[in-house]
Amino acid sequence: MTADSHALTTAEHTPIAGLAHDARGGISNPILGMLLFLTSEVMFFAGLFAAYFNTRAANKPWPPTEFEHILNPFSLILVATVILVASSFTCQMAIWAIRRNDRRGFIRNIGVTFVLGVIFLLMQVYDYSLLFDEGMTLGSGQFGTTYYTLTGFHGAHVFGGVIMLGVVLYRGMSGQFSARHHDAVEAASLYWHFVDIVWILLFSILYFL
């Protein structure tokens, strides 16, 4: 037995490791890991949403009259929503592309997704600056607190997703993915779809409900 260089390699590539693997196939480890991670993310947002609904039920009128006008869904925020939803489609097109080994299409679509994500973030920053100008801050009553916390944490997740997409884009441009080997892309896209779904929920609940 030698313990020379094994400590720093991962188990998957050694012949000994192959012995004990469950060989029944199915979903790959990174994708299962990402799905489980998203489960925990769902619970995190569930906590925030629970706080939001609790707060909202206890504070009438909601939204407070001074901030009522900011909840106009047919504004910049609708454009941002369309952009984010569109990015989910381009992301999925990137997945379909890499699944049929179309690397150019993959890179093109993932690039577009990345750019759309950045645009969404910039729009959110712009939106925040408008709100700040109107004097709405985290401290502006329950409304300010919940609005900024919910949208802020979503924004942070978009930011994380954009970084993931950036890494995937970079790795894709250096030719790392193929139809057989692209778990990282699938995982990043799952995350991106999740972020998108959270936004649709958030947008509907904050602006329409």
Binding site: T39, E41, M43, F45
Partner: peptide, 25 residues
Amino acid sequence: VLMATPVITSALVMLFIDRNLGGHF
């Protein structure tokens, strides 16, 4: 852990916001 820990993370985050960023949760 997977289902419950993120929920306390959300509570802690809200507590942090209340303490440091002027929140009112």
